[in-house]
Simulated scan of single mutants.
Amino acid sequence: MSAPPHPEAETQPIRRERPRRRVGVLRWAFALLLAAGAALAVLPDLIGLDRRSPFAQVIAFRPLMVAGLLVLVVVGAVITVFARRFWPVPLALAVVALIGAALVAPRTIPATTQPAAGGPALKVFVANVYEGQADADSLAALIEAEAPDVVSVPESGANYESELAPLLEPMGYRTAASVGPWERDVTGNTVAWADRLGEVRTRIGEDTRFPYIEISGGGLGELRFVAFHSVAPVPRSVATWRSDLSEVQKWCSSGSPAIIAGDFNATLDHSVFRDATAGCGDAAAQTGNGLAGTWPTWAPQWIGPQIDHVLATAPITAESFETRLVPGSDHRAIIATLRLP
């Protein structure tokens, strides 16, 4: 006679294992969804999304986002040690992070291109003066200390020029502004050049939202130096921003020597900027300083984007690139030494 069944045997639920394949698919779907979100933030320029808002604003911080993404990858790898099935997440994020890093890293490596042997040096100074609010005495003192050949001063019209010119003239500089005293400083550009360049010609261009000013002749010869300022890519002005930057192409691709210096409100991560400046070299990237943020000054330099640039057509090559603080401005000033052919 057999023993009666145990009371719990009839009530014990039958355990059914969840299909492993389904769990694996869900795990990968989650990882790929996270990677797609990361790619939209870090790599929108690869498919042209950075030409529109909000990607035009977000992509300016790609170096910072890549660094943050690499931290998440490390954290994910640590989690994988304790939960091995989590590994698709750090793997997918690592792919996005490595592509982003590959796009950013070259700017930290000085170019191997050698400057033209025996060519003269030209020192360029750029200082956005924040709607004419930067301290003119401090700016003049910095210009005196650095002794640049040419100076580009975005967000400076005739009003700010009237403050700066009397300070620079005793040092041997002359100035010109792209807008008159009836216009706000934020809409203008001022250029200054050393007397040692002789009699130069000035030309104001109104093809951009903020009129630029160009000098040539004298000691510059056929070289054109342009003080430039693009409108910022805020949501309502992205189309104007793209139009402003497209104007840079006429200097970079003309075949004539040119240096364009100022506030472009764009970084090398913007495809619009890269397309417009094809044919020009960026002084910061050429010297391995392509991640030195120029805005805003209240943030550490490694956080802010580099939106101020000194561009030059080949074979003009940058030998040095540095930044300085100017009291009252939200931009760091740029000092670059270029070697002319």
Results as ranks from 00 to 15, higher is better:
Thr267Leu: 08
Leu32Phe: 01
Pro170Asp: 08
Trp193Ile: 07
Ala60Cys: 00
Pro315Ala: 06
Glu155His: 09
His331Pro: 00
Ala121Gly: 10
Cys252His: 03
Leu142Gly: 10
Gly198Cys: 08
Pro7Trp: 05
Arg196Asp: 15
Ala278Phe: 07
Pro44Tyr: 01
Ala3Lys: 09
Pro19Cys: 04
Ser53Asn: 14
Thr113Val: 14
Glu17Gln: 14
Ser246Tyr: 00
Ala318Cys: 08
Pro148Cys: 14
Ala60Tyr: 00
Leu311Ile: 08
Ser243Thr: 13
Val248Asp: 00
Trp193Val: 14
Trp295Tyr: 15
Arg52Glu: 11
Leu33Val: 02
Ala38Arg: 00
Ala92Glu: 01
Leu311Thr: 03
Thr11Arg: 13
Val42Phe: 02
Val234Ser: 06
Ala105His: 04
Thr208Ala: 15
Pro235Lys: 10
Val226His: 05
Thr317Lys: 13
Ala97Glu: 11
Ser246Arg: 13
Gly37Leu: 04
Gln133Asp: 11
Val78Phe: 12
Arg203Gly: 08
Ala77Pro: 00
Val153Met: 12
Asn289Met: 11
Ala299Lys: 14
Ala141Thr: 14
Pro300His: 07
Ala232Asp: 12
Glu183Trp: 10
Arg52Asn: 08
Ala292Gly: 08
Thr267Ala: 10
Gly132Ile: 09
Ile59Gln: 00
Asp195Pro: 09
Ile213Asn: 05
Cys252Leu: 02
Ala227Tyr: 11
Leu197Ala: 10
Glu161His: 03
Ser320Tyr: 02
Gln301Arg: 13
Val126Ile: 06
Val96Ala: 03
Thr317Gln: 11
Val191Thr: 15
Gly281Glu: 06
Ala105Cys: 03
Glu144Gly: 15
Arg339Ile: 01
Phe30Met: 00
Arg52Lys: 06
Pro4Thr: 04
Ser216Val: 12
Leu338Met: 13
Gly293Met: 01
Val25Ala: 05
Ala31Lys: 00
Glu206Trp: 10
Arg15Glu: 13
Val150Trp: 13
Glu161Asp: 15
Val186Phe: 12
Arg184Trp: 05
Ala177Leu: 07
Ile204Asn: 05
Leu197Cys: 09
Ala145Arg: 15
Trp28Leu: 04
Ser152Trp: 06
Ala29Phe: 06
Val248Ser: 02
Thr112Arg: 15
Arg27Trp: 03
Asn128Gln: 05
Tyr173His: 13
Pro148Lys: 09
Gly119Pro: 12
Ala39Met: 01
Trp302Cys: 03
Pro305Asn: 02
Glu163His: 12
Ser2Ala: 09
Leu98Gly: 04
Ser152Asn: 07
Leu139Ala: 12
Gly157Cys: 11
Ser216Gly: 11
Glu199Cys: 07
Pro54Leu: 01
Gly180Phe: 05
Ala92Lys: 06
Val153Trp: 08
Thr323Pro: 00
Ala284Gly: 07
Val191Leu: 15
Ser53Met: 11
Glu183Asn: 13
Arg52Val: 03
Pro44Lys: 01
Ala176Pro: 00
Ile259Arg: 05
Gln57Gly: 13
Ala266Ser: 14
Leu32His: 02
Val73Ser: 00
Arg84Gly: 11
Asn265His: 03
Arg224Met: 11
Asp269Ile: 07
Ala276Thr: 06
Ser178Asp: 04
Arg85Met: 03
Asn159Ala: 14
Leu164Asp: 12
Leu338Phe: 02
Thr287Asp: 04
Asp269Glu: 15
